[in-house]
């Protein structure tokens, strides 16, 4: 486990000096339900990608959107917004 800073070691007011470090904060383990896509029905529209508050959908080389489970909190917005209703929230 990484050593946590003392109050003397901490930056002023806890300011974060490295940009883009939120990728280190993996929130995937908050999830209870996981979105699962039926790719036979998927039309690659990207609505799941555009609505996801965590940027957990990533476009693959085949243009299908794949879930990055490191960051998906299981909120289910993608399943609600999917125009083809081909995303199901399931217990894995």
């Amino acid at each position: 486990m990484r050593k946590l800073p003392t109050w003397k070691e901490l930056t002023l007011a806890g300011i974060i000096t490295e940009a883009g470090n939120s990728v280190e904060y993996k929130t995937g383990n908050w999830r209870t339900l996981t979105p699962v896509v039926n790719y036979d029905e998927c039309i690659k529209c990207g609505v799941c990608w555009s609505f996801c508050p965590e940027y957990a959908w990533e476009e693959g080389e085949d243009s299908f959107f794949k879930l990055n489970t490191d960051y998906c909190k299981g909120c289910g917005i993608c399943a609600v917004e999917c125009p083809r209703k081909c995303i199901k929230m399931v217990e894995l």
């Binding site: 946590l4 800073p5 109050w7 007011a13 806890g14 300011i15 974060i16 940009a19």
Partner: peptide, 23 residues
């Protein structure tokens, strides 16, 4: 020189920020 000010201070950080402020 991007920085993040006023970020979330989780329980493992908040106490140290407050101690620093009091000092």
């Amino acid at each position: 020189r991007p920085v993040t000010m006023g970020p979330v201070g989780l329980p493992e950080i908040y106490t140290e920020v407050k101690k620093q402020q009091d000092v």
